[in-house]
């Protein structure tokens, strides 16, 4: 269970980006976080695994406070939190297998990491996860030779290698074409239920948020202004989140959503 209370984040002396945010994610639900660019979605996710230092507030994962961890405690918590990035963030020059195994870096010793002597159980886990997402035959290919969708699958497997208790995905489909991005979303959805894993997804595409997730959280100016099931996410909510913000990316996506709603 993830429990965020009164989370505040300000960069330098600027206006806070997150202004006292509360969020509770229980069980293994897939939660999507929608909001215009700059709403603070990425900042929220990065606060959870502390790629960004929260200014104040509390973040508890399964009862374990994350906010003031340091050093090896922080690393041990991080390995329980998987993260998938918009730009995949694979290690381009290493093979797919090495990238996947790098998800175990929080567990193995430095010597093992350096010499690539990962335990056999990790290798087995890697192969079966790669098979699950359909990239096992690429194991010895270099990561930069794959297509976008394949790269994101590698990134997902890397995160799952951590045996995470929660999975964070920061716009995992924003660099992909529409078809591939649907595949990745449905993959995340089914993995979540197979592994009973809570998943938090930042997403721009409201249609996909409705289709693939159990709960939608809407953010604007660092505050939560919608929290509910996809069926309750109506035009009013959409206007509240995006209204009055001119953003060319959304303009293309938004008009499609009401029709989608009608057909769905």
């Amino acid at each position: 269970m993830l429990e965020i209370t009164n989370l505040v984040k300000r960069y330098g002396q600027n206006e806070p980006v997150l202004k006292g945010l509360n969020l509770k994610v229980e069980g293994s639900s897939v939660v999507s976080i929608v909001g215009a660019s700059g709403a603070g979605k990425s900042t929220l996710l990065r606060c959870i695994n502390r790629l960004v230092e929260p200014t104040s507030g509390s973040i508890k994962l399964n009862g374990h406070e994350l906010v003031n961890l340091r050093g090896s405690d922080l690393r041990h918590s991080r390995r329980r939190i998987g993260m998938v990035f918009q730009g995949f963030n694979l290690i381009d020059r290493l093979t797919v297998m090495e990238n996947v195994l790098s998800g175990r870096l929080g567990y193995v010793s430095f010597f093992q990491a350096l010499t690539r002597r990962f335990p056999q159980s990790d290798i087995d886990r890697a192969f079966s996860l790669m098979e699950r997402v359909g990239i096992a035959h690429y194991a010895d290919k270099r990561a930069d030779q794959l297509s976008g969708g394949e790269r994101q699958r590698v990134a997902v497997v890397r995160a799952l290698m951590q045996e995470p208790e929660i999975l964070l995905a920061d716009e995992p489909t924003a660099s992909l074409d529409p078809k591939t991005s649907q595949q990745i979303m449905s993959l995340l959805q089914s993995l979540a239920s197979e592994m009973s894993l809570p998943v938090l997804i930042n997403i721009h595409n409201v249609t996909q948020a409705r289709m693939y997730t159990d709960r939608i959280v809407g953010m604007r100016h660092g505050q939560m202004i919608f929290d509910g099931e996809p069926k309750d996410f109506n035009q009013d909510a959409l206007d509240a989140i995006y209204g009055g913000i001119e953003s060319p990316e959304e303009d293309a996506g938004e008009p499609a959503s009401p029709t989608e709603e009608a057909s769905a």
Binding site: S121, I123, D124, A126, F127, S128, E131, R132, A139
Partner: peptide, 9 residues
Amino acid sequence: AAKLTDRVW
């Protein structure tokens, strides 16, 4: 799935 194979890499 892991039980089926004990693959080397």
